[in-house]
Amino acid sequence: MLTLFVSGAGWIEHEKDIDDMVVLREGICPGLNKDLIEALRNVDIRTVEELVSANLEELAQKCSVSYKALIAVRRVLLAQHAAFPVSCADMYEELLSSTAILSTGSHGLDKLLDSGLYTGEITELTGGPGSGKTQVCFSTAVHISCQLKQSVIYIDTNGGMSANRLLQMLQAKASTMEEQMAALQRIQVFRVFDVFSLLTCLQNIRIGGVQMECVGCSVKALILDSVSAVLSNMLGGKQNEGMSLMMQVAGELKTISKDLNVAVLVTNHATRDGSGQLKAGLGQSWSHVPRTRVLLQQVERPGSSSSLRVATLTKSSRQSCQLEEEFDLRCWGAPEDMKAGSSGKRKLEGGSPGVG
């Protein structure tokens, strides 16, 4: 199927599959007779795609055929073989209306993320051991499940997931056993310990092979803790297969976020560059995968709490990089942390109904 969109400059091709191109032949369109087909072939126009993408004024002169006839043929071909055209402005409005922002539960982190996690995008948390990446993932999953009433897919690759810990966190947020169990059902956990199992899991999610137990709750978040745990040992040197697998993982995550309208949160380890500065792992190729990247570090100063963290925005398309916010892991979801808002997009607030 050929998909075209219209803009002020004319027809713009959006998607195509070269194996599915329709060859021009008699019978597929009124007015497309044998003589016209032969004339088009003489100037190397053999498929529907080539005809609808051509400059018809020039084509009419080259083929010595009627410009109006070509216009009529193209109009019919577009109706039969292309998606309904929409303007770029309409596409943008549709994007705004379909995008949701999920609060993480932390006012500081939400502020850094410009209100929270965006559906259709990949957000990355990076940091060294003990920086709080897994704790942030736990807290975010609990907040989305318990407060926002949305389902979460949690992929654990390093064995850090604990059902008891999740239950303890939910008990602090939900007063009744029924509410706690309902929130637990909205978090579906997958444990994978190698990149091949991870790819299989992601592919099943993408094709709809994963069904959430809690009926009526849409999956709005996918949390992967951590992506580097299954990829780091396969990269470096001449291990070309590792790079290929990493790009496959990236492709699956991007497709899930876009096609399923899901907010994807992944964690990555941190390394130090030549000057001793912390930087995200997995190299330059992976750096293009997340839309937003946040570096987590433990606050180290006299008298500071061991649960205090500083988050630094190192990559963003919406805010200035190097912005910093401090937050306390023990105060996640406190009332003073629930102030984040948004404009133009749907903000999922605590207690709001599920969004499909």
Rank of each mutant, 00 (worst) to 15 (best):
S64K: 15
S66C: 09
S66P: 03
K68P: 09
K68A: 14
A69H: 11
L70F: 07
I71M: 09
I71P: 01
I71K: 15
A72F: 01
V73A: 06
V73D: 07
R74L: 02
R74V: 15
R75D: 15
H81T: 12
A83W: 14
P85L: 13
S87E: 05
D90H: 13
Y92G: 00
E93G: 02
L95A: 07
L95Y: 12
S98I: 00
T99A: 07
T99Y: 03
A100E: 04
A100N: 05
A100G: 00
I101F: 13
L102P: 03
S103Y: 11
G105Q: 11
G105N: 07
S106N: 05
D110R: 05
K111D: 01
K111F: 05
K111R: 14
L113I: 11
D114H: 11
S115M: 10
S115G: 11
G116M: 09
G116W: 08
L117D: 05
L117W: 07
T119R: 09
T119H: 05
L125K: 10
T126H: 03
G127E: 05
G128M: 08
P129K: 12
P129C: 09
P129A: 12
P129G: 10
S131P: 04
G132A: 08
G132S: 06
T134Q: 04
T134G: 06
Q135H: 04
Q135T: 14
C137N: 02
S139G: 00
T140V: 14
A141T: 00
A141P: 02
V142E: 00
